[in-house]
Design a binder for these strands. Structure first.
Lengths: 264, 264
DNA sequence: CGAGTTGGTTCCATTATTTGAAACTTGGTT
DNA sequence: AACCAAGTTTCAAATAATGGAACCAACTCG
């Protein structure tokens, strides 16, 4: 039993929110019977939890199809969360600049419960399609931003995060063991940036840097993604400079934001 | 005591989520003492609720400043909610078309707890800035989309929604009484579209239509916004046609989505 | 300096809520 | 008509939530 897995502690509220996660993970409306086996809760208990969540608009219950899906209240709450707690609002200008300058896809990510949470994105040229991208999650062990963030975690938090990785071999180059990952993280820490060279998806490479506060706290990560077809490894490495600069600028903005006035 | 105000029923979970809303409403990180008076809960209870929420990443607690703000877990959950439960994904193409054709700001909204929840938006020309817009809420009684939706609510739900309106007089034209609102809603139901003629903001007008399922259920609303400076009332009214068509197309898409196969 | 104040945290006996096995209802299938 | 699966309700026992009060800073002020 690790310190506190969100699920088990926190009494009724924690258990209920775990069910919410479960429903969200399906990615489609689900029926009671589909949730049951995964929830590991007595029928009656799960039933009551779902009722409460639906009542609370945290879930939307479709009467006709008898399915549950994440509800609209979450969208409203997330708006608030994104605006206040994510790096996105204060990084906006900096990311715009970076994307303009290098003309490639840019991702801004934060770490959420051991997974990569994308909080903002700029596509190479087409109009931004944000909410459908912002809020999306991805694996940490095989993405540039993921590794960049893991590399700057405290030992305890790293262990916790590693225990949540699934280490699925997406491509032949995917890192699939905790040991190999730790070695890679040490390297990343040394050179200051992470590479994802077709570890997650064939033909896709990216360079990522962590966003670190003055005191060394890991706030998030920034990456530029390219296709191996269009961009050589050297060209990709050449982006390290601009991306690192942008990352530093975001860190500075975060610092300024969190301590806006000296004393007053 | 009305049937079920989300707050009071639903036991511990409901009460805890009410606190989450409370924090989100502030729109900025807040301290314990600021939440206290509004929560109407004993100190110890509120304290525990906040602890649990922070533990669950539903809130983010800033150790240094001792403040709570909505947490990143909400962003992840909302992504799921937006993709599955909102009209946005299936309306996307239709809205793109509409915005292209008429070149004005377009809003797609749904009703959430008596308030307008914007789920998608197209700006007149500049790149979309979505998450900062999607998830945003606004008043129902003085916006086009709000009135369009209220007009197609069942009596019971309408009463419930009206009881949640604040009826603040934003401009000289704002409707400020439930009676006047009900009269306006009858008119809207008759003619099929709602107008907001500088009721919310001076210089801003909009035309909105409800999105109704075949069975008459109100799914959301669609609006086009213009400035009174650039667009005459007649020009605005001329948009009723295209907007209504788009709304019908969205309703059809929703219908098709919810009943994809006949029997299989 | 020390008494007072505000903001935050912890205790713990009481109480109300949650719990879940089992019974029941509903709707569909053979 | 009997059967089965999915979903809903019941109710006594078990547990977890409750909140008044005490406690602990960290400031402020006389």
């Amino acid at each position: 039993m690790t310190a506190h897995d969100r699920e088990t502690s926190d009494g009724t509220v924690g258990r209920t929110l775990a069910v919410l996660d479960l429903v969200a993970e399906f990615g489609r409306p689900v029926r009671f019977a589909e949730i049951m086996p995964r929830a590991g809760l007595p029928k009656a208990t799960l039933y009551r939890f779902l009722q409460v969540l639906a009542n609370q608009d945290m879930l939307l219950f479709d009467e006709d199809r008898q399915t549950y899906a994440p509800g609209m209240r979450l969208v409203r709450l997330a708006h608030s969360a994104w605006a206040q707690s994510s790096l996105a609002p204060l990084a906006k200008g900096i990311i715009d600049d970076l994307a303009d300058r290098i003309g490639q896809t840019v991702h801004l990510a934060q770490l959420d419960n051991g997974a990569v949470l994308y909080v903002d994105k700029r596509n190479a040229r087409q109009p931004v399609e944000m909410f459908s991208q912002s809020g999306k999650i991805g694996p940490a062990y095989c993405t540039g931003v993921g590794k960049a963030m893991l590399a700057h975690l405290s030992d305890a938090r790293l262990e916790q995060a590693i225990s949540r990785q699934s280490f699925h071999g997406h491509t032949p180059r995917t890192i699939t063991t905790p040991e190999a990952l730790k070695a890679e993280l040490a390297l990343i820490r040394d050179r200051g940036y992470a590479l994802d060279d077709e570890e997650h998806e064939a033909g896709i490479a990216c360079i990522a840097v962590p966003i670190l506060s003055k005191s060394g706290r890991m706030l998030g990560a920034l990456s530029v993604t390219t296709t191996t077809a269009a961009t050589s490894r050297d060209q990709l490495l050449a982006l390290a400079g601009p991306v690192t600069d942008a990352s530093a600028a975001i860190a500075a903005a975060a610092e300024a934001w969190r301590f806006p006035e000296t004393k007053q």
